[in-house]
Measured scan of single mutants.
Amino acid sequence: SIKEIEKEEIIKVLKEVNFNKKLASEILGIPLRTLYKRLKEYGI
């Protein structure tokens, strides 16, 4: 599903940037606030 793909992509990017959420949100092209929402939604 799209949610699974998105979750995997978020985890992959977070690992690449050593869990720097600000940098991860910039790489993913989403606002930091949205990233936090996704992390909560996906239980990351």
Rank of each mutant, 00 (worst) to 15 (best):
K37V: 07
R33D: 15
N20C: 08
R38T: 10
E9W: 15
K7S: 06
T34E: 15
S1H: 13
K7C: 08
E4N: 11
K3C: 09
N18L: 08
N20R: 04
I2Y: 08
I44R: 05
N20V: 04
P31E: 09
L14T: 01
L23P: 01
N18P: 02
L14M: 10
L32N: 02
K21W: 15
I5P: 12
E41I: 06
K12T: 07
K7Y: 12
K15W: 11
L35W: 02
E16L: 13
K40R: 13
S25N: 01
I27R: 11
S25V: 04
F19N: 09
I27E: 03
L39Y: 02
K22A: 09
I44D: 04
P31L: 06
E16F: 09
K7A: 09
Y42H: 07
E8Q: 14
L28A: 01
K37Y: 07
E26N: 08
K37A: 13
E9I: 14
N20D: 12
E6Q: 12
P31R: 06
V17L: 05
K40V: 12
I2S: 13
Y42M: 14
I2M: 14
I30Y: 04
E9F: 14
L23E: 07
S25E: 01
A24H: 00
E9G: 08
K7H: 08
N20I: 04
L28Q: 00
P31F: 04
I30D: 00
I10V: 06
I11H: 04
L39P: 00
A24G: 02
E41Q: 09
E9M: 15
E8T: 10
K40G: 06
P31G: 08
E16H: 09
E41H: 06
I11Y: 09
I2A: 14
K15P: 01
E41T: 04
K15E: 08
Y36T: 10
L39G: 01
V17S: 07
R38F: 15
L32Q: 03
I30Q: 01
G43Y: 07
R33L: 14
K15V: 11
K22Q: 11
E16R: 11
L14A: 01
T34R: 05
G29N: 09
E8F: 12
K3E: 10
I2F: 11
L28R: 00
K21S: 09
K12M: 07
K21H: 15
F19V: 01
V13M: 04
G29A: 05
E16W: 08
E41P: 02
S25Y: 01
E4Q: 12
G43Q: 09
G29K: 08
R38L: 15
I5E: 09
L32G: 02
V13G: 01
L32S: 02
K37C: 07
K40S: 08
V13Y: 02
L32A: 03
G29R: 06
N18M: 08
S25A: 15
I2W: 10
K12A: 10
E16N: 09
L14Y: 04
E6W: 08
E9H: 14
I27N: 03
L39M: 15
E6L: 11
K21G: 08
K37D: 15
I44S: 04
F19P: 02
E6T: 14
I44W: 10
E16M: 14
K21L: 15
K40A: 13
I27P: 00
E26L: 14
L23V: 08
F19M: 06
Y36A: 11
G29L: 04
V17Y: 05
E6N: 11
E4R: 09
E4Y: 10
E4W: 07
Y42T: 04
K12L: 07
K15G: 07
K21Q: 07
L32V: 06
L32I: 09
N20F: 04
I44K: 06
I11A: 05
E8K: 12
G43A: 07
V17G: 02
R33C: 12
Y36M: 15
F19K: 02
I30L: 08
K3P: 10
R38G: 03
K40P: 02
N18Y: 08
L39A: 02
V13S: 02
L23K: 12
K21Y: 15
I5W: 14
K3L: 11
E41N: 04
G29H: 06
S1M: 11
N20G: 02
L35C: 02
T34G: 04
E8R: 13
K15M: 12
Y36G: 06
A24V: 05
K7D: 07
I44G: 04
I11W: 10
L39C: 07
K7I: 15
N18K: 10
R38E: 05
V13E: 01
L32K: 02
V17M: 06
L23S: 06
V17I: 04
I10D: 01
V13R: 03
K37N: 10
L35M: 04
G43T: 05
